[in-house]
């Protein structure tokens, strides 16, 4: 077992992403996410990777688009208002069926809101980050360990389904330190035969594109994409149920709130009130796409403890 270290959630995501083979980071500073970018700025050059502070969020997400099209494991990170700015680019990436990781360390909104922690981008993340009714895998960690684990696994899911994946954290999780055991470094990454890598006419050309002037062609891509979404929902969703077997009341929560809910459930149980907790986040690999609670509750993969 690797030694546990104390790390901020922001830093744990960054280190874990590097260990997952991410070698390109494009971002723009914003509180309370900035430690993530700062960590990447320090570490990426040592890994032979690219850290680039773009001139804007819009530029950063389009750099992600380019690097992903070329087959790289790539990510960006921001906080709520910055994620809104990226939304057009994420839609293009989804339309081009490209994998990437997007981190949202949420702060209060709407508008510039505040810089304090919040979970107020829930609907944006799970319903519509951009135009075109694309869907996105969204993970909601509740601990620094989960942030590390989910960032690591997110690249595999993104590559497997050729889709953007988001980790939806908040300022509290990003700023807090907890003991974390970091994953092993990935040595082999999946092949990407669709990537635009240059081929000297040795194979048919690959194109990364989200524009279809022939309506039927676009329709075909959307049908195909929705089949993938259904596959993700059927096979990748996870949830945890705590003390739900005999519960009269089930509290549903995710992220930092689920930590607090968990304590509340414990106190209630001590007083004999039959309360349980459910959500994508409390202990484990947790995920939803579009239909967070109802669907995830159908597939408990993690028993109460």
């Amino acid at each position: 077992m690797a030694e546990k270290v104390l790390m901020k959630g922001n830093e744990a995501i960054a280190e874990s992403a590097i260990r997952a083979g991410c070698r390109f980071f494009f971002g723009y500073p914003i509180t309370p996410q900035t430690e993530l970018a700062a960590y990447m700025a320090k570490r990426m050059p040592k890994e032979g990777g690219t850290y680039l502070q773009a001139e804007s969020e819009v530029a950063a997400i389009n750099m992600v688009y380019g690097a992903s099209a070329a087959g790289a494991r790539v990510m960006t990170s921001s906080s709520s208002p910055g994620v809104s700015l990226k939304s057009e680019g994420v839609s293009y990436i989804a339309g081009a069926d490209l994998p990437c990781l997007i981190i949202n360390i949420e702060r209060g909104g709407p508008g510039l809101g505040s810089i304090q922690p919040s979970q107020s981008d829930y609907w944006q993340a799970t319903r519509a980050l951009g135009h075109g009714d694309f869907q996105m895998v969204v993970y909601a960690p509740s601990t620094v360990q989960e942030m590390a684990d989910l960032a690591y696994g997110a690249f595999d899911i993104a590559d497997k389904y050729r889709t953007p994946v988001m980790i939806l954290g908040d300022g509290m999780l990003g700023q807090m330190m907890e003991p974390v055991e970091l994953p092993e470094r990935r040595t082999e990454l999946p092949d990407k035969p669709w990537a635009t890598t240059g081929h000297g006419n040795a194979r048919p050309k690959n194109v990364a594109n989200s524009l279809y002037l022939v309506a039927e062609e676009l329709e075909r891509t959307n049908f195909e994409r929705y089949e993938r979404y259904e596959q993700i929902k059927a096979t990748e969703q996870m949830a945890e149920l705590v003390d739900c077997e005999d519960a009269d009341i089930i509290v549903v929560a995710f992220g930092a709130s689920s930590r607090i809910a968990r304590t509340a459930v414990r106190y209630a149980r001590e007083e004999g009130i039959k309360v349980g907790l459910s959500g994508p986040s409390p202990c484990g690999r947790s995920l939803w796409t579009r239909s967070p609670q109802p669907a995830s509750m159908q597939r408990p993969t993690c028993q109460s403890r």
């Binding site: 546990k4 104390l6 509180t31 309370p32 810089i115 304090q116 300022g171 509290m172 700023q175 807090m176 330190m177 907890e178 003991p179």
Partner: peptide
Amino acid sequence: GKVIAYAGLIENREVSWLPSYG
């Protein structure tokens, strides 16, 4: 605060550290 948190970590206890920021 970090020193206190590390002490907890070394003794295999649960620890959390949260700064004010801004």
